[in-house]
């Protein structure tokens, strides 16, 4: 029973989701199931935050190595959650100023807006921009043109990078207009419109087949790994 009911539930909601594409009558069921999915996923976020809190509280309690950073994480989590849930500093809705809770939690001037604008957004953007340095160093190590395939990858990357800048146009500006494929921008267009499109298409077809096969295995009860052990 502990495994059969979840398996049946999986199959039923999955079949409803599929049927709604083919049977218009089932569309409202799909809308409802999708909404249920969103609600359960939102509550799962609460569970995730609770798990994070418990993990770091345990690290602080046991005074594990680096427990001070765990304390910072807990403080950041508690402050952000408190500010966001209580809508601290967020102005009420313009049409309903009498309702203090009617404004958006992200309204400009509010606490959650401040945290998002001055803490979350800069850190996330900077962390992603750090990859610019690591991509460059990784490319230096990985792109030593040891074989034809590696040269192809490196050459394409260079052409596409140059083809998107004014330098690419300038480098081959002497080539007559009758030979667009002899210019870097022209080559860039050919790569993007033919080879890149073809490769992406094949990858997308492969992914779609993989997703379809995995979904079918789950809905037919052949893949039960999501149910866990015991």
């Amino acid at each position: 029973m502990q495994r059969i009911i979840p398996m049946l539930l999986t199959s039923i909601v999955g079949v409803i989701a599929i049927a709604s594409y083919f049977v218009p009558v089932a569309q409202p069921f799909q809308d409802r199931v999708e909404e249920w999915f969103l609600i359960v996923a939102a509550i799962a976020m609460v569970l995730g935050a609770a798990s994070l809190l418990l993990h770091h509280l345990k690290a602080i309690s046991n005074q594990e190595a680096g427990w001070g950073y765990s304390a910072v994480t807990v403080a950041a989590l508690v402050i952000t959650t408190t500010v966001g849930l209580l809508k601290l500093g967020a102005p009420p809705d313009l049409k309903h100023p009498e309702l203090a809770w009617s404004g958006s939690y992200l309204a400009e001037g509010g606490g959650a807006w401040w945290i998002y604008t001055y803490v979350m957004s800069p850190i996330v953007a900077t962390m992603f921009s750090l990859l610019a340095f690591y991509v460059a160093s990784a490319a230096f190590r990985a792109f030593r043109a040891r074989n034809f395939e590696a040269m192809l990858l490196l050459g394409t990357a260079l052409i596409v990078l140059l083809g998107r800048t004014s330098d690419g146009t300038w480098l081959t500006s002497g080539v007559p207009a009758d030979y667009p494929l002899a210019t870097i921008p022209g080559l860039n267009v050919l790569i993007m419109s033919v080879f890149n499109t073809a490769g992406q298409r094949a990858i997308m077809i492969g992914i779609a087949l993989g997703v379809a096969a995995t979904s079918l295995r789950i809905l037919l009860g052949l893949d039960r790994s999501y149910l866990g052990g015991d």
Binding site: G48, A49, L52, Y69, S70, V72, T73, V74, A75, A76, L77, V78, I79, T80, T81, G84, A112, I115, Y116, V119, M120, I123, V124, M127
Partner: peptide, 10 residues
């Protein structure tokens, strides 16, 4: 550490 806590809270 701050971004982990802030992201979860957000």
């Amino acid at each position: 550490s701050i971004i982990v806590g802030v992201s979860a809270g957000y």
